[in-house]
Design a protein around this nucleic acid. Structure first.
Length: 275
DNA sequence: AACAAGACCTGCATGC
DNA sequence: TGCATGCAGGTCTTGT
C-alpha cells in the first residue's frame, strides 16, 4: 500500500478535482471492502458538496458541506482513478459520480482497503480508526525527544516500532527501512536504545525521506499511480528497500544489502553501515 | 502493557 | 503448459 507519501500524492490528485463539486451518485459494485461499508453509505454522500480533501496518517479524509467525512484507507492495493475502464473492471468496487460529469472509481484487488463515514468533523478524532493514531511525522511533534520518550518502554526492534501507527502514524515498510538506513541504525536495534543523538538522527531521517518521497510523487511499485495515472518515481531513490544482495550505496562500503524478517515483514539494511 | 502471530485477499514471479 | 510456493506498500484481532 501506499504509505504516507503515496496517500499524500493521491490527495494532491483528488483535491483540485473534488473540492467544490457535488456527489451526484454513488454506486457500490461491492459493498464489502475489508470491512462492510455503513449500510446508508451511498445515501449519506449523495447530493453532498465536497469542501475539503485532507489526510491523516494513511487515511484520506473527504469532508462534505454537512460535516460528513468520508474516511478512505487504501490498504495494500487501493487506487483512485478518474479514467475508469468501461466496462468496469473486476476490482472496481466503488464509483462516485460528480456534478461536473466526472466519474471517480475506487479499485482495490486485494480489498485490504476500507472506508467509513464520520457524522461530524468535530467527532473525527473519536473515530475507531483514527482514535489511536500517533503523531504526524511531518508535523512539529516529531523530534528526537519525542522518539526517545516513546521508545523508552519498548524492547522490540526499532524497525517494528516504526511501523506501530500508535507511535508515529504514516510510516510503512519502505520508509521505515529507508529512514533507518539514512540514520545509520540497525533495524534489529532494540527500540529503547533510541535516545540522544540517535533519536535526533532518526527523527531527521524520517522527515527527510518522507518529504523527498512526496516531492517525487511517491513510489510506484506494482501498480501504484496517482489519480491521473502518472507514476511516482521515488522507487529510483530507494537505497535499501528491495535491494537485497546489491551493493551498499555508501562510498567506501563494500557490504551488500541484507534482508531479514521482523514481525512478519521484510527489512532491508546494510549490515556494515547500520549499527 | 507490549508484542508476536494469524487472519484477511488477489496477483505476480519463480521454480519444478 | 500447469501447479506449488512465496512474496507484496497494511492493520485488525487474538493470545501469550
Amino acid at each position: 500500500m501506499p504509505e504516507l507519501p503515496e496517500v499524500e500524492t493521491v490527495r494532491n490528485g483528488l483535491a483540485p478535482r473534488l473540492v467544490g463539486r457535488r456527489i451526484s451518485g454513488v454506486t457500490l459494485r461491492r459493498p464489502d471492502l475489508r470491512f462492510p461499508l455503513p449500510v446508508d453509505f451511498a445515501e449519506r454522500l449523495t447530493g453532498r458538496q465536497i469542501i475539503d480533501v485532507g489526510r491523516r496518517a494513511k487515511y484520506l479524509l473527504i469532508t462534505c458541506d454537512d460535516g460528513t467525512v468520508l474516511l478512505s484507507h487504501l490498504g495494500m492495493s487501493g487506487r483512485y482513478s478518474f479514467t475508469p475502464t468501461v466496462p468496469a473492471g473486476a476490482h472496481d468496487h466503488v464509483q462516485f459520480e460528480l456534478s461536473d460529469g466526472a466519474r471517480l472509481v475506487y479499485s482495490d484487488p486485494r480489498r485490504f482497503g476500507f472506508m467509513d463515514l464520520v457524522d461530524n468533523t468535530a467527532t473525527l478524532d473519536n473515530n475507531r480508526y483514527l482514535a489511536g493514531l500517533g503523531i504526524e511525522p511531518l508535523g512539529n511533534a516529531l523530534s528526537g525527544s519525542y522518539l526517545s520518550q516513546m521508545m523508552k518502554p519498548r524492547k522490540r526492534p526499532v524497525k517494528s516500532a516504526l511501523l506501530d501507527q500508535r507511535i508515529i502514524a504514516g510510516i510503512g515498510n519502505i520508509y521505515a527501512c529507508e529512514a533507518l538506513f539514512r540514520a545509520g541504525l540497525s533495524p534489529r536495534r532494540s527500540a529503547h536504545t533510541i535516545a540522544g543523538k540517535r533519536a535526533d538522527r532518526l527523527a531527521a531521517a524520517i522527515r527527510a525521506v518522507l518529504e523527498e518521497a512526496i516531492a517525487a510523487g511517491g513510489s510506484s511499485l506494482k501498480d501504484f499511480a496517482g489519480t491521473d495515472g502518472a507514476l511516482g518515481y521515488f522507487q529510483h531513490g530507494f537505497q535499501v528497500y528491495d535491494r537485497a544482495g546489491e551493493d551498499c550505496v555508501n562510498d567506501g562500503c563494500n557490504a551488500r544489502i541484507g534482508r531479514i524478517i521482523q514481525a512478519g515483514r521484510s527489512s532491508f539494511y546494510c549490515p556494515s553501515c547500520q549499527r
